[in-house]
Structure formats: structure tokens, C-alpha cells
Nucleic acid binder design. Structure first.
Lengths: 239, 239
DNA sequence: ACCTGAACACCGTTCAAGT
DNA sequence: ACCTGAACACCGTTCAAGT
């Protein structure tokens, strides 16, 4: 009673690394980092925990694969011979930054994971992918070759750090309640800063009101532009 | 046979939050992040795991306290009325950056922890401390007030990100063996980059040789200078 | 108030046994 | 080759019982 090759088994679709990673992302989105468990994951895939080990070596690899999947979807590296993007390299950098900013907000677990993995030197494919897509634009901007590594690193670290910071704000805001949450949280955070010891934290207190009512994305892109300005400033005069 | 207040009990020095945090840092340094366990920590302090909960609420708080302790030792925020530092604000920024760079190298667990906590918005006192000490210099550089938040954030994110990256390199290098390890590891990393797909990663490959033989600290400080250049460039002409 | 340490409710991971 | 699911060796955390 086999029905042949087409309409392959639906209900018990064979386990695969791809399906496992996909389910992991869903589970992470739904339950947070602490919710990703081999037992919970197995249940969602209607199998046993041991089965997963036929497709992933250990949990850290699984988390890394989830990070890679999400980052890959967020930042598209153009194919080699593709037509040059319309717009300036600066615009392309902003596009990459925005993609990561959005991914980081959509997947609250992403930023901490990515940050921790970068700091451990386990970028997986996510880190090289981001580095590459930013670096191409740095080159296109005419930065001197010796500065490529430094400049691209600075861009990448700022983008990931600031996007992560924003994601944390967004996640914390969600904690306070669903409505008018953003403004409310920023207000709370800003008030918290204002509550710091005036003797120890004069600068942070002075800056606290800048957090209130400012658009995160705008603030974030302003930082990107700052680094871009640094690149332009240290570039030899065109000629 | 009590000997009075002086020469208080030595062997079984009373448990305290401070002692616990101190022992945690030692344990982290010696055994890495996975080695910090309530049982191992209790054993080191010759007590039971339950006793620790009288001084710390949970493990995350303990780790946070360890991070704070190490960062506090690394970056000294000058007291309020202190004499201005000799040297330019730029030099002061480089000093803070170097302090974090060194701390991050001395405590391999620091960078991942700090990165993850920042990305979760749990800076503890570490984040405000770093932000404050950098921000004061930003202000001293004459950056326009509206840019303080953005500019200081960019500096902080670059410094922590790049210092963490370097720490990861150093830690990985240690893995390969104790001798001539740095050069050897950079060579290996550089070779790994050169092994990337030429179609997908042309930029990263082109930049791979810049990693070889370059001084990490120098590279790191060059990045700091880049951000500083961006600040200077976006500052209104002095007048 | 502080400490003890057994006990609880989990984990990641392994592995004999099945198909 | 792949899957099953019980079992192992841990965890963080709690809590009755002690001092």
C-alpha cells in the first residue's frame, strides 16, 4: 500500500538537522533561551531526546545553528557577480545594520547568544557573514587597505553591541506590559539612571534625559553614521 | 579562653558575600565558567551549598557580582573632585580601553559574561561604570551634548566587542599549546579565513593576511582611535 | 541569624535495545 | 542507519533540622 515517491510521508516527516534547527528557533522564540531543552525539543518533534544526537553533536552546536539560521535570513550577502546595489556603500551598511537590528528585536535570544559566541570566538558562519557584508562596503568606500580589518571590526562591534542593547530594552519593555510599553520603559530606565549617585555618575545622569522619548532606531543609525564618519575622516583625501 | 576582639577567628572566617565573590573569581579563573558550581564553591569555602544562599540570591547574581568585581578593579572612575588627569581626554579613553583589554585577557570568562549581560540589559554596576568613565572624556573632548549618548555608546560597544574578540583569540591560542602560541594561533586563524569560499567571502579572504603577525593591542587601539576620529569629525568646528 | 546537607526537580548526554 | 527511552552523572535550589 505504498503510494510511491510523491506525497512523501507527512505526519512523521523524517527528522533532519534542518527540521531540528527550525523547531529550535520556534522554541527559542516562544519560550526563551531557558526553554530550549532536548526533552522539550524532542516532544515538539514527537521523538525522543536521544534521536536528536544523530543530527547535532551537542546543545552548543544546536544553538549555534539557530543563530546562524536567523542571521543568514537577516543579512543577505549578494552573490559574487551581482549587480552593484543601488545607493552608496554607506546605505548598504545601514541596510545590513537595520537587518540585524530587526532580527535582534524579533528574536530576543539572538543578541545575547551572538554576543557570547563572538566573545568566545565561536562565530559560526554568522560572524564571517556579517564581517564580509560590512567589509565589502568598507572597501567600496575607499578606505585604505591597511585599515580594512580595523574599520570593519569597529563597525561590526558597534552594530552588534548597540542592536543587542536595543533588543534588551525592547525585551524589558515587554516585561512591564504590552501597552505604551516602549515609552514607559525608556522613561523608567531614564529615571533609573537619574537615580544614580550624583557624585559617582554625573555624566550618566546628565545623559539620562536623552534616552527619554528618542527613537531607538534613529539613535542606532546615528551611531552607525558616527563610525562611518570616522572611516571617512581617516581616509586619505580623494585624488 | 576567648582572646578578645583582635585576632578574630582565622581558620573558619565567617562566610560573607565578599568572600564568596572573591572565591568565585578564583574558581572562574582556575576552572572556567563551567567550573563555577555551588557545590564546588561551597567545598572551596568549606561549607555546604545551601549556606551560599544566605548571601547571594541565585547563581546569576553571583556571576554578576564577579563581573562587577573584576571590572571595578580594572577601570577606576576618578573621585568627584579629583584633579584632572594629565593628558588628553583621548589618552584617558585609551587608558580605560587598555584596562578592559587587560582584564579581559586575564579573566577569559569575563568577555563572554559581560557581553551576554550587556545584551540582556543586566549591566550590573559594570556597564554604568564603563559608560560613565568613557562619557566624561567624550564630554571633555567637546562633543556636542546631543551626541553624548550615541558617541559614548559607540565607544563602549567597540571597546567591549574588540577586547572580547581578542580575549577569545588569546584563549584559543592557549588551547594550541603554551609556546609561541600567539603567532601560531593567529596564523591558524588567518589560514582558516583564507580557506573560506572565494566566491562567498572575497573580502574576508583579502583581509586574512592582516591578522597575521599584527599586534593585537595595537590593532585594538587603532580601532579606538577610529571611533575617536569619528567623534572629532562630527564635532562642530571649534570656535 | 546562620549554617548543614539531604532531597527535589530538573538538565545534557549516553547507550543498550529495537526497527 | 536511525530511532527509542531508560539510566547516569550531574546541576541549581529548597528546606527541615540543627547551632
Amino acid at each position: 500500500m505504498t503510494t510511491g515517491p510523491r506525497r512523501s510521508q507527512r505526519r512523521t516527516e523524517a527528522l533532519s538537522r534542518e527540521r531540528i534547527v527550525e523547531a529550535s528557533v520556534e522554541l527559542l522564540d516562544a519560550t526563551g533561551e531557558s526553554g530550549l531543552t532536548f526533552r522539550a525539543l524532542a516532544q515538539r518533534l514527537t521523538t525522543g531526546p536521544g534521536a536528536l544526537y544523530h543530527h547535532v553533536a551537542h546543545k552548543d552546536e544546536l544553538l549555534g545553528a539557530a543563530v546562524d539560521a536567523v542571521v543568514t535570513a537577516a543579512v543577505t550577502v549578494d552573490p559574487p557577480g551581482a549587480a552593484p546595489l543601488k545607493g552608496s556603500p554607506q546605505d548598504a551598511v545601514r541596510a545590513v545594520a537595520t537587518g540585524l537590528f530587526d532580527a535582534t528585536e524579533a528574536h530576543p535570544w539572538l543578541a545575547p547568544q551572538l554576543a557570547a559566541r563572538l566573545a568566545r570566538g565561536h562565530g559560526g558562519t554568522a560572524a564571517p557573514r556579517i564581517f564580509e557584508s560590512l567589509g565589502r562596503q568598507v572597501r567600496a568606500m575607499g578606505a585604505p587597505r591597511e585599515s580594512w580589518f580595523t574599520v570593519t571590526s569597529a563597525l561590526m562591534h558597534y552594530i552588534l553591541g548597540a542592536a543587542g542593547q536595543n533588543a534588551a530594552n525592547a525585551a524589558n519593555a515587554r516585561t512591564l506590559g504590552p501597552d505604551a510599553s516602549r515609552a514607559r520603559f525608556l522613561d523608567a530606565a531614564s529615571t533609573a539612571w537619574e537615580g544614580l549617585d550624583p557624585d559617582d555618575y554625573p555624566f550618566t545622569r546628565a545623559v539620562a534625559d536623552q534616552m527619554r522619548g528618542h527613537d531607538d532606531r534613529e539613535q542606532f543609525l546615528a551611531g552607525v553614521d558616527l563610525v562611518l564618519a570616522g572611516i571617512a575622516a581617516s581616509r586619505p583625501a580623494a585624488g
